[in-house]
Nucleic acid binder design. Structure first.
Lengths: 204, 204
DNA sequence: GGCATTTGTTGACCGATGGTCGATAAGACT
DNA sequence: AGTCTTATCGACCATCGGTCAACAAATGCC
């Protein structure tokens, strides 16, 4: 007659469910805009339980966005064919297509990531992985000279800012933007080469 | 015999003092790292008084960083002589010199600004002013075509990211970095021109 | 079928935060 | 000396991230 006050789940099940809830909410709101209470509520669970599964908010956040990062990683995986520039263009295309489908999520993700040093690592590390292949093939070295390293970091910032502008205005096609980013990449490398002769590139 | 429990100041005086306190603290810590109570304490004043002068934390923050923004604006004011590229180089030099002297402040400022949409406006608007002159002279137009606008926004992101990398590693001289940024600017414009023929530049 | 054990789950609590409000007292003006 | 304006404060509120001891649902055992 008396129904249970709560249903007990397997650890894996519950964990999955909590990550899903977080992933859904963090896709629409930034880190600070969502409280642990709201996430718990969305999952139909007490806040204390959330803390039983995750030591703190940041860890839950990292686990939640890891989901989206996984999607992105898969999408931007280069096919390994063509010139480095071709591969870059290919990766960027997948990247931009995903953002086109998930504009809000991307905006909130960038917003959260820049604010939280620990979340920045997640984003940076996944981007670095994609970039690394291309850089190694392009420069033949794993640890680039300072001018090149700074240039590449700058280019990553360029991408973020340009995409943010694109999402806000939407007056370029995805292909146009992709070409712009690729051209900016090539141009930035040239600029680095010009500023520091130590920077050598395998592609003219 | 009984000395006053508190001293009463003129509105202007008190406001100045509170902004100074905020400006000092926000120069060393990010928006979230400082509480209103701390600011009030630093000014030797109750928290309620802070709220009497500023409607909320963000407004106080904006007023406080406006100070630093004013410094920067003055420093990066172009002399109006030489080619647009020369002027850009000149502005950037002042900008970088300031950052070299106030590395922590700059880092915390960027961190706060990217996280808070409302604070971003302050930073963006001041940068836009400096950029505007150069763009007008360079392109002859006040409202650039989309590809150019996106490119310029991207370049601003490039600057932030490159400087952040520079501050972290400090393995480039200020002149090297300045040249890198200027070269990247020219290169990015070329890339924009190449991606969209509608982008015309007065300098080859 | 009943009972003990395990552990997933909860409500109540903590200090700190951003923010509000009515009461008070400092100082200027007469 | 007395009055009035208003700059200032202490006390309060909801909410935040986070903690903890106690409860109760499912499971295994006999």
């Amino acid at each position: 007659m008396a129904e249970p006050a709560y249903t007990r789940l397997q650890v894996d099940e519950r964990r999955r469910q909590l990550i899903d809830a977080g992933s859904t909410l963090f896709a629409e709101y930034s880190f600070e805009e969502i409280s642990m209470r709201q996430i718990a509520e969305a999952a139909g669970v007490s806040k204390a339980l959330l803390y039983h599964y995750f030591p703190n908010k940041i860890e839950l956040f990292k686990a939640a966005i890891q989901e989206h990062a996984g999607d992105l990683q898969r999408i931007t995986e280069p096919s390994g064919q063509g010139t480095p520039i071709d591969q870059l263009s290919e990766s960027l295309d997948g990247y931009l297509a995903w953002i086109e489908r998930n504009a809000v999520t991307w905006a909130k993700l960038v917003q959260s990531a820049t604010a939280l040093p620990e979340a920045r690592e997640v984003v940076q590390s996944f981007r670095a992985a994609t970039l690394q292949n291309i850089v190694v093939r392009l420069t033949g070295t794993r640890s680039p000279p300072p001018a090149l390293r700074t240039t590449l970091q700058g280019w990553l910032g360029y991408i973020d800012a340009a995409i943010l502008d694109w999402v806000d205005n939407r007056d370029l096609t995805r292909e146009q933007l992709r070409d712009l980013l690729v051209a900016a990449f090539a141009a930035a490398l040239l600029a680095a080469q010009q500023a520091d002769p130590k920077v050598r590139l395998d592609v003219a």
